[in-house]
Design a protein around this nucleic acid. Structure first.
Lengths: 148, 148
DNA sequence: CTGCTTGACGCAAAGCGTTGCAACACCATT
DNA sequence: AATGGTGTTGCAACGCTTTGCGTCAAGCAG
């Protein structure tokens, strides 16, 4: 995940409120966690962090809030090809789409942006008359360190 | 899924046996179902079809056989961006990778091969020194019919 | 500030997929 | 054709995620 978090604090909250979504104590906690995350989190990790602020927060609320953010295109869901187990991981939707490469040996996840990647999406939009809202490109294999 | 099934019958079974994998009655049934499928099947559909041949076959066996085929690179697992529910879908690994575009309105799934797509993978291999074994490119949006 | 409507929360239960374990079946060897 | 070792199966139980439902609280109107 891109480390420099060059974003206005509370941007997710602002985005939801501007769409007329009701803001609750629980949602504020979850959004704050996602905004300040420096790595891909899964639902259990988000729950654990949230429980430190409000021990009564329920797992179901985590899942429902993640679903809400997904539907509004504010977070992307990854499964990293199930290399790290069956769970899903979440990240704020970035300015520009990127690919995720997961090493099948060491489990490290790299991200990669590319003009070619953007051009493939352009080709799909043109050739297939398909209006893209979501693009997930996940790659599995061996990273530079592990392929030696 | 590419409709013309231009493949030797029993190719999956041959591939497994040649790798020294033990062939069982249950596996033969499951492989046959996957080979003759004309659309992406999920585990429950495979189980239902298998139960018509052997009512005692267990769902765990379905999951384990799918895991085996995945590990050997003989089938690809898709989640079609969870548009059709949380389950996973399976298809035999094709000669050439393709993208999957799922319409968020009507649920239709299209496939698309592209040189650009192949070139992105080449770029990742070169620029990131990453040895690709698996590539999944899933797109969500509105198809030509639904975007009108 | 108070009341009201509607959406969100928490709980319980169900669905999908995985894991541990004992019994079984494949198949190589004899 | 019988035997034996090893991998596979089925069952039960568990973990992750979603769904149904009654209660509660956000935030608009007065």
């Amino acid at each position: 995940m891109p480390l420099p978090e060059t974003e206005v604090p509370g941007a997710l909250q602002t985005a939801l409120v501007s769409r007329g979504i009701r803001m609750t104590r629980q949602r504020r906690i979850i959004l704050e966690i996602i905004e300040t995350a420096t790595q891909h989190l899964d639902a259990a990790q988000i729950l654990r962090k949230a429980a430190r602020v409000d021990p009564n927060i329920n797992r179901v609320t985590i899942y429902r809030t993640l679903g809400l953010l997904k539907r509004h295109g504010l977070v992307d869901e990854l499964d990293l090809l199930h290399v790290k187990g069956e769970g899903h991981f979440y990240e704020r939707r970035p300015q520009r789409d990127h690919m995720h490469m997961t090493c099948l040996r060491c489990g490290k996840v790299q991200e990669f942006e590319s003009d070619l990647f953007d051009r493939v999406k352009g080709q799909v939009e043109r050739d297939c008359h398909f209006h893209i809202l979501l693009a997930r490109f996940e790659i599995g294999g061996y990273c530079a360190s592990c392929r030696k």
